Amino acid sequence: MKTNRERILMIGAGAIAFFYCGDWAYQSFVATPLQSRQDRIDRLTSDVESREAELRRSRRAIDSLSVWQAKSLPSDSLRARSIYQNWLLEVVGRVGLVGCTVDSADPVRRQGDLQAISFSVRGRGTLKQLAKLLYEFYRANHLHQIQSLTVTPLVGQGTLDLSLAVEALIVPGAEPKEALDRNPDPQWMSVRLADYDAIVRRDLFGIGGGDTDTIDDVFLTAVTDDGRKRQAWFTLRAQGKTLRLGKGESIAVGDFQGRVVDIDAADVVIEAQGERWLMSLGENLAGAAAVPPES
């Protein structure tokens, strides 16, 4: 009886030992290698996915870089500074701001070998002209932005004193182009100047948008001479436009009807109702001085 019991215990102990040994062998030679292999596959799969994502980001960055290079100022910083400053002068002239100055600073290095050139724009104009300036600026296909805009209402004049800080970029690898892109930014193709009328209608500064000019709003802003013909540039601030008139051409503002009879380097003589009036650069029509009749 005792012998049978011992035999049963030995068989049970052997079975338990066999089970544990078998489990150890399975874990050591089957399960663990399989798990290690699966872990390695998972790591490799994750690594491949990470590299593919990095490759996609690199491709997008290359595409973005190409777009930025196309919008960039020319690679020559001196050339870039000059033509962008001229572009700003052209824009403020087209908008009709008065007393404008555009200054620039030396290029500075930024992260990634970018070069940034800062510009400052000062001038006076109506709210409608400010809206047009913003429209012209943002639809331009250049790599630039307005860093700050300071607007000060001029009490009793219905105009604003404007000060803008602008920054434009030169991207590494940009083309050495001779002129800026004249085409609008594709992202702004659907934007119209009329969309900015909401700014004027809200009259944020309480000066009125000004759609009708009077002789107080007409300024002589420039005299040009191309060697063949002189022109006087009259800025109509309320309408935000500029009249470019030669000798003998008429000017009509509100109830005023006149004709340009003489253009000097810095003065213009206008004849109206048999009298002659002298306007100098920077002056408005209301401040024109009467010219004594010739004896």
Rank of each mutant, 00 (worst) to 15 (best):
P184E: 12
K2M: 08
R244W: 07
L34F: 13
Q257M: 05
A252F: 11
A80C: 11
I207A: 07
L114S: 09
Y20K: 12
L204N: 13
D197C: 10
Q85D: 02
E54S: 09
D217P: 01
M10Q: 13
T150R: 11
S82V: 07
R56S: 09
I83L: 08
I11F: 14
R5A: 06
K132G: 00
G287C: 07
D217L: 02
S104Q: 13
E136Y: 11
G123I: 00
K2F: 09
Q69I: 12
N183F: 10
P107Y: 03
T224W: 00
M1F: 08
R7P: 02
S190N: 08
A198W: 07
N284R: 12
E294Y: 06
P292D: 02
T150N: 13
R192C: 07
D203V: 01
W68G: 05
L193N: 14
P176T: 15
R60D: 15
T212D: 14
W188G: 05
K71E: 15
S190H: 09
V48I: 15
L278C: 12
L149W: 15
I62A: 13
N183V: 09
A179M: 15
S28Q: 04
S28D: 07
D216V: 04
R51W: 05
A179L: 15
V171Q: 01
R37Q: 14
D267V: 10
R60M: 13
G246M: 06
D185I: 01
G173Y: 06
Q187H: 08
L78S: 14
T242C: 09
E52C: 11
D39F: 13
A238G: 00
G274C: 01
G240I: 00
D39M: 12
V95E: 00
C100M: 06
Q147G: 14
R230E: 08
L285Q: 02
Q239R: 02
F205I: 03
F19E: 05
E49L: 06
D103P: 04
I11L: 06
M279Y: 04
N284Q: 14
T159Q: 04
N141G: 01
W87K: 05
D267A: 09
G125Q: 00
E49V: 03
F29S: 13
V98Y: 04
V92D: 03
R230K: 15
S82P: 04
V151W: 07
D216N: 11
A140I: 04
E283K: 10
T159R: 03
L220C: 01
L9V: 12
A266R: 13
Q273L: 03
W24C: 06
P292L: 08
R60T: 14
L133N: 01
A53V: 02
V108A: 14
L204Y: 08
R201I: 04
P184H: 13
L9A: 10
Y138I: 05
P153S: 09
Q111K: 14
L281D: 04
V260L: 02
Y196W: 11
D217Y: 09
L78R: 14
A252V: 14
